[in-house]
Design a protein around this nucleic acid. Structure first.
Lengths: 227, 227
DNA sequence: CGGGAGGTTGACGTATTTCAACGACCGTGG
DNA sequence: CCACGGTCGTTGAAATACGTCAACCTCCCG
């Protein structure tokens, strides 16, 4: 009756897997209905224009989804962490790309098996629906950030959001490079770097290691840079 | 079984209506399952923080949905035209606002009646799902625009998109003010104005009336400013 | 030890914002 | 019918925040 299969889709499974059986195991774990894959850092899961046969759920690691302009300008629309779904499409082709930011494990669900998934795992449809609704909400938040926030505000929100997503308190281990942060926030990597060091000088944060580890010293001040 | 009701929602119906009966009319027009309302130009349909009881479909006119920062900076995430659904929420409260850009007619659907809607009008769920998927795709496109495009590219895309949405060929009647365009594209109204007059000087477009009517003289050049 | 990737820092230029004034249009009311 | 006020749009001048270009440094791995 309901043709959700026509509205949802995903991507083709990547090569180099770490496969697992699990298909048609009604009543069991949803994860058993898809194929587990391990993707190396930097590897592509799918790319703009690829046929969209599969969608994914992140088990561990980080995935970035992005769009490119012809001259290589890039906009990352989202980072996906453990538990997130990504790769739905309305058409047969992907309208964006996905790459692993670090070594990442995902489950790939075939778009064509969507109906049986919903039948065998009733909670699956709900999970997907709320994934889409929250993707939309996140997207609206991010448009506000991209269109109207200053670099300082962008970075502050990015740090707080990332800390929340990674369930870390004060010390966060950023999985992505400065260039990724820049393409996510609509800045250049230089501006990202400068803003971080300035925040460090101001005592808001503390940068460790190669700059991948950030300590949030003054959450209150960071939060005031929002709203 | 499927709890879509929990994942979808909308806004409270606005006052000043132009009501119509139509409820529980299985097999009939979906529109009969909601309440028709006429909203005056500039009027608010719902606002950030309102309880989300209703979602909408535009029948005629234009609606803008937006988010505000505390200092009144605004980001319009979308303009909604005839046929578009808007106002879904994952939570009980609206996370964005909606106002009529011009006199607009909408149908309001109660979030609580979602299940019966799906039962009585099977195609309804599909319509909603594809509305959400295409909202997401639009959002990703718009993030690319906001984060990475120049004012010229932004305006060019805006004009072409709007022409496509309004099903006009060369002459489009913009329903919104310059400030709305600016808040949609992440620019100032001055930059919007300057860019339009420059395009006019370059022969790409022609501005008529109070600047609300735009003639697309050179679609090819405008399209080249994208990709 | 060498090379490359990623990150930081500096100097500089400029595109866009900001601030401000002006003008066109519209509706209202005297 | 015209004057008035308000909204919206345009244009100008000036300031500056961010991007660009470039050098340098650290870390890491072969």
């Amino acid at each position: 009756m309901l043709n959700y299969a026509a509205a949802l889709a995903g991507s083709r499974p990547s090569f180099r897997t770490g496969a697992q059986p699990g298909r048609d195991v009604p009543g069991g774990d949803i994860h058993e209905a898809g194929e587990r894959m391990i993707v190396a850092s930097g590897e592509e899961l799918f790319s703009e224009g690829d046929t969209a046969e599969v969608f994914y759920k992140v088990i561990s690691g980080t995935v970035r989804t992005s769009k490119l302009l012809s001259d290589a300008r890039r906009q990352i629309d989202s980072f996906h962490y453990a538990g997130d779904f990504f790769g739905f499409e309305g058409a047969d082709e992907h309208s964006f790309s996905a790459e692993a930011v670090e070594e990442t494990t995902v489950i790939a669900f075939r778009r064509s098996s969507f109906r049986s998934l919903v039948r065998d795992y009733p909670e699956f449809a709900d999970q997907l629906m709320s994934a889409m609704v929250s993707s939309l909400q996140r997207a609206r938040d991010h448009m506000l950030l991209l269109g109207r926030k200053t670099p300082q505000e962008k970075i502050a929100k990015f740090l707080l959001d990332t800390a929340a997503r990674l369930r870390k308190d004060d010390r966060i281990e950023l999985p992505m490079r400065r260039a990724d942060i820049a393409d996510y926030l609509g800045l250049t990597k230089e501006t990202v770097s400068r803003t971080l060091t300035q925040m460090s000088r101001d005592g808001l944060i503390r940068l460790e290691a190669i700059g991948r580890t950030v300590l949030l010293n003054d959450r209150t001040s960071l939060q005031q840079m929002n709203a």
